[in-house]
Structures are given as C-alpha cells and as structure tokens.
Nucleic acid binder design. Structure first.
Lengths: 246, 246
DNA sequence: GAGTGGTCTAGACCACTCA
DNA sequence: GAGTGGTCTAGACCACTCA
C-alpha cells in the first residue's frame, strides 16, 4: 500500500487511518467476530503491505475506542460484551453504598410494534417501520430500581423472541452480539429528572409524583449506526448514576 | 536515562511512563503553566536523554488525558480551561433544543466556613478545616436552570474573594488556573433525581416538590488531588444532562 | 526557510503466554 | 522455544506555522 501523501487530496488520510478503516470493515463484515482473535500484527502488516508499526498505530486507536482488546503474549481480540461481565461499562447505575453484584431482570412484556415518528427518526428508519418493544425491570439485590422500555428495529433484530430476551436478562448487549452479530460500540444519553406517574411509579414502588431519573439512550453499532432506543426510569433513592469526565 | 528493564523490579515502568511522570511533575510544580508551550519534543528528548519517539509516546498519553494540547507546526501546550471556552467539557447541561451559548452566572452569597465531616473527607482535609462556600445561579438564555453550592478548601484557595468569583462568573475553572495555579483535570459525578424543596425550588422557579436533577461533583487536580466540591440542582424541564459512553 | 509536530520504516530487544 | 504484543531507537520525510 502506498501513502497517498498529496497535500491537494481533498480527504487526505494517513496510512494508519486507512489501515484502521480496513480493519473496521472486517469487523463490520463479521470476518472477525466478537471474542475472536484477529491476525497478528505481523500478519496484518504483510496483508496490507505496511510496516508493523503502522498496523500497531491503527490497532492502538481501535483498542482505545474499545473495539479491540490487546493481550500481551496472546494476541489481539475483537471486543465483546460477554467478556466485560465484570465492568459493565454501559451500566452506570450504582448503589450509594457497596457495589453492584447480582442484577436480576424481569421481562414485563414483549411486543411487535410500528415505530412512532420520533423513534423512527432516532433509529434512522422509515416512519412506522416494524420494531420490537421490550419492557422490563432491573432489580439489583432484590429491589426494583430501573424500569425500561427498549425499541429494536425489526430489520436488524428479525426473529427476536421473548424467550431469547428473557434468557439473557441483564446481558442484552452480549445477546445482540451472539444472536444478531450486532456489537454496541457507544451510546448517547440524555438525562432528566421527572415525576414518576401511574405505571412507572407502581413498577418502581415509589409514591405517585416522586422524583425519578429518566435516561434516554440511543445505542450505536459500527459506523455510528443507531440500533437500539432505550428509555430507563430509575429510582435513585438508594442508587445513583456515576460519571467521570476528563 | 537508562531503562530499568528488570523483570524482578517491583514497580517496573517503561521509559515513556517515567518520562510522562517527569513531565507531570513539571506541570504540578508550575514550571510550565496552563496555556504556555512546553519545550519541543527534540529538546525534551535531549533533556531526558531518550529518543524523540519515547518523548512522543509520553506526550501522546498526556494529550489523551487532556493535560497537554498539541498543535502541529506550533508546539505542545499545557491544557487550559480558558482556551476551552467553546467546548466546556465539564458543563454537561444542554438545552433540549438548540445549543448553549451565553450562560450568565449570578453570585448569591459567599462565605468562609468550617467544613462538615463528609465534605472534609471528600476533600481529604481535616474535619472542620476552613473553606469557602459559593452559592450561585446559572442562567443560560435568561432562565434560572442551575443552582449550585461550591466548597473550596482555604488551604488551596487562600485569599479568594466574592469579587474574584463574581468577575469570572461561569469560567470558574479558568479562574482557578490563573489566580491559584490549580488546573482541574477530571471530575467524578453522582447524579440523582430529587424533590426540590424550599429555597432550591424558589431559586429554580419550580413548584415545591418538583423533580430536579442533583449532581454531586468532586473535582481533581494533578495527582488525583480533590480540590473542589460542587452540588448542583438542575431544572431539567427544558434542559438535560448529556453523556456519551464508549 | 527554519522549526514544530505527524507519519512511516526497519530493526533490536523485552515481557508475557502457552505448549 | 516459538509466537504474541510492548518498548525503544535512529533516521527519513511530510504537513503545518510563522517570519
């Protein structure tokens, strides 16, 4: 591969970014699947006809974005939610005291629906497109803390069943990978405080009009493609949302 | 500098991390101040007697942590909040529609206090240590959206006055740098939904017992030293807290 | 044109894993 | 011991800034 180092090029990209893009394409195509090793740096250098250092730089950026995981002496692996059981990077709700251990999830119901205009827009699909709606409760240490509604476009998750959802309870993102080859790579959230009303108050076992946390999430897979909408209501009496900003 | 590449060393650190530590020490000591350039990679390589590549790797990590900012062709600079006017990485409250432009801050009052036990513990100072308490309102586009109480240990911010706080309104972190040589490098937050009561409801112009967002922040300077406590109450009727998780 | 950071290479050697 | 990623070097050249 030759570096296209022309300063007049409208979209000049250094070599390592071109390599990064090629690796990402292989991840998207499923050539290497979550949890599996990718070829060694030496092999990739040969394949792309660049130096090992250039491959390293591409892999470093992908590892930084949590798309790849490197293990010295073993190899480089495609990041997988099933191997992140311990950290739960996308679950920010934490007990005020102690730590989060066993989280039990209870499926409330499961529907095939037509998306409303707003949801369709956020998922970048046609209005009234078909989708699955999951409603469920998360209960760390027994108490109902989170009630959530999850919308999944049918084009991506065709064939999803209540049984599949129920089986994987709190490990949904790991199920997306294994059953649908959909890896969630980042999420955007909007957080508000709202008054719990009706069913939500009942589900969270709080008084009508109590203050609860509302988290509106859009989850994206490779290539910034939105594939999940999630609205969570959280009882923050004994839990909080933790965040670190650097 | 020689690499101490002994596998039996209890705390083996690669060369570039040792360099990173030396650079951090210079930042802490104030040898290079926020906004100022640090020596070029070539000069630092000579100073530490390592290759330019090793210095680059150390600087890259520091740039990634937002402690340094690199500008191709110009040099490497100590990160400064006053040069981040545009992004406000630590201000996560955003209007639901449109973007945040002018934020006006109104000082409510300013006190010299003795820290309660909990605050003293979070700031890692002795109980009843002296501190400043700032209470103020933030009003993007006129409406009062955030009421906050800020606690600053007197040992670090000795001589702070209401006038200084008032002058710098919403750019407090930039004032910490210029007036006290304290650069905030990261913050930890705990977020809850609570009912607004009494003064808080009045200040935010919401009904008693309305749901508001509570953000408890600890802000740290170099070396993970806590130097600010901030409790913010936010009216999220037309604003939200935005977050991206990768 | 001089000086800065940014990319890329080739090669040496270290640290770790696994058979 | 073979294979992996991790570190470090020296050197070439590119891209950008500023006088």
């Amino acid at each position: 591969m030759k570096s296209t180092s022309s300063s007049s090029s409208p979209a000049y990209q250094p070599l390592y970014r071109q390599i990064k893009h090629l690796i990402t394409e292989s991840l998207m195509s499923g050539e290497w699947r979550p949890g599996e090793p990718i070829p060694s740096e030496f092999e990739l250098a040969q394949r792309y006809n660049v130096s090992q250092g250039t491959v390293r730089k591409a892999i470093s950026e992908l590892a930084h974005q949590n798309l790849l995981v490197r293990h010295q002496g073993k190899g480089t692996f495609v990041a997988s939610h099933s191997e992140e059981r311990k950290n739960f990077p996308f679950l920010r709700i934490t007990p005020d005291r102690g730590s989060l251990d066993a989280v039990s999830a209870t499926l409330i119901d499961f529907w095939r629906i037509k998306l409303d205009a707003d949801s369709a827009r956020k998922l970048a699909v046609a209005e009234a497109a078909s989708a699955y709606l999951i409603r469920r409760l998360l209960a760390p240490a027994g108490a109902s803390v989170v009630y959530e509604e999850i919308r999944l476009p049918a084009t991506v998750f065709e064939g999803l069943s209540a049984e599949t959802v129920d089986l994987h309870h709190c490990m949904l993102y790991s199920m997306y990978e294994s059953a649908f080859q959909v890896r969630i790579v980042h999420v955007d959230e909007r957080i508000k405080a709202v008054a719990a009303e009706g069913e939500i108050a009942a589900r969270l076992d709080v008084e009508e009009a109590s203050a609860v946390l509302l988290i509106d999430r859009v989850a994206y897979t490779y290539g910034d493609k939105p594939v999940e909408l999630r609205r969570s209501y959280c009882n923050t009496r004994e839990h909080h949302y933790r965040n670190r900003i650097v």
